[in-house]
Structures are given as C-alpha cells and as structure tokens.
Amino acid sequence: MPYSGLAEVVKNQKVGPEHFLMEVFSPELVREAKPGQFAHVRCTNQMDPLLRRPISLHEINHKKGSVSLLYQVVGRGTRLLSGMQAGGEIDIMGPLGNGFNIPEGARKVLIVGGGIGAAPLFPLIIELEERHIEQTVLLGARTTDDIIGYGHLAALGIRTEVATDDGSMGYKGFVTELAEKHVKDPAGPDYFFACGPNPMLRELIKLTRVSGLQGQVSLEEYMGCGVGACLACVCKTTAGGVNDPEDKNEFEYKKVCTEGPVFDAGEVILDD
C-alpha cells in the first residue's frame, strides 16, 4: 500500500545548474518501491501552490530506507522544493504508478533517456545490472550540464553514449539518431526502455515500430490526484484496438498515474 504523510528530508543538494537531488527517509515508501514508479509531493504546507508534483524515484535504497528524487527547477513548485532543508519534512505519497517490467526473455537492452527524463531509468539500470542483463545507455540533452548520471554510469562500467544538441558532449544531434544505429543493428538490442520529452519518445516509437523492436516508455502528464480518481492525466492508447491507423479518432484513454507512467511502446499514441 502506498505511503502518504510526512517524511524526513535527509539531504537536498544542488547537483547541476538547475538540478537537485533530494533524499527522503521513508521506509514505508521504499518497502514496495519499484523502478519506474513515482512520488507525489507537496512543495509547501500552504494552499498555494496547491497541487502535488509528481517526481520519479531516482534511487531506491532499501538498506537505508530512503528514496532519492532528482528534479529540475522549472517553475514555482520545483523552486520551492529546492529550498527545502535537510532535517526538515516533506509531505510525500508513494510509491505510485506501475513501474518498469523487465520481460523474461530480455538479453540485450537499450536504454534511452532524454534530459531530466533519464531520472527514473537509474533504478532500472541498476536492476538490469544486478540481473546481469547486457545494456547500452543512451543519454541525450540540450547541453553537457543537462546530461544526468554520466559519471554514475561510468563508475558502474555501463556502456554509455551521449548526444547533445549543441555538441558540447558526445555526438552532436538528437539521442534518437544514436538510437537509430542500435535499433537497426541486426546484432543490436532485443528490448528497450525510454523516458524523455514527447518528441523524443515519438521518434523512438516510430523507429522501433519499423524494426519491430519492443519496449516500454515512461510518460508524463499533468496530474491532480495521482491515484486514478480525477482522470486528469490521460494519454491516448490503442488499447481498444485500431482498425484504421489513419483514423485519429480510434484511441482509448489510459491514466498515466495508475495505468502508467510506464506503457508498452506499442500501445501509446503521441500526438504532434
């Protein structure tokens, strides 16, 4: 059962120009936490800003009974989060959502993360590592400062390739261009996991559909409740069956907060 209540902020450090890493001590939350799940946090105990913010679990530390959230300051809520002090308390709900599911037969996995979207992929990468499943990680971002966890992956000895829009690190261009090479390689991956901005996911889904590579993507949508009650966070899927792929009206909504945020790449419909 998800936890909901106060938890201690163990640390809240600046780890990039706009990136912060917050460790939260909550044995109740950690107990059932899985890679790909998220926490729904309050940024203030006042009535404004009112709503919780969904943030992925970036680290799940069962031994310490803590989770870490890696977040980018993009607005009022995340700015308030960045001001929280170690030793203070945060109002947190979680773990929420379904999480990634490593399929039985996966032997060689491709991981694609775009910008801050790479955050939820790290617990998955660690689990794949522990299960001795071969993996290649592709990270993309606008510029070097926005590439997250590169050092961490290098320390773990995980094969990692980087793409930046400005060419300041790794390949100059989109991470999907790096992905294309792997996806098309006959000796390439047999499964993929991805999280990042919608244009990246859209391109990746297109590529992998052509080559028949299966995988899972983690989506973002504006949320209210985070528990499946308000129907704010829907995304289009092919769950109802599609007879005519040209028919824009053939889709079924699913809830990102409970039926996601991780979806089968084959079922999501991402509009332009």
Partner: peptide
C-alpha cells in the same frame, strides 16, 4: 489534454 491547470490557491479542470 491538458485537462488540469493550477491557478492561485485552486485549479481548473476540463475532464
């Protein structure tokens, strides 16, 4: 979507 937007001490929805 978007079906929800935060506003001062409130929210808008169009579910």
């Amino acid at each position: 979507t978007p079906r929800i937007a935060e506003t001062p001490a409130g929210m808008l929805n169009c579910i």
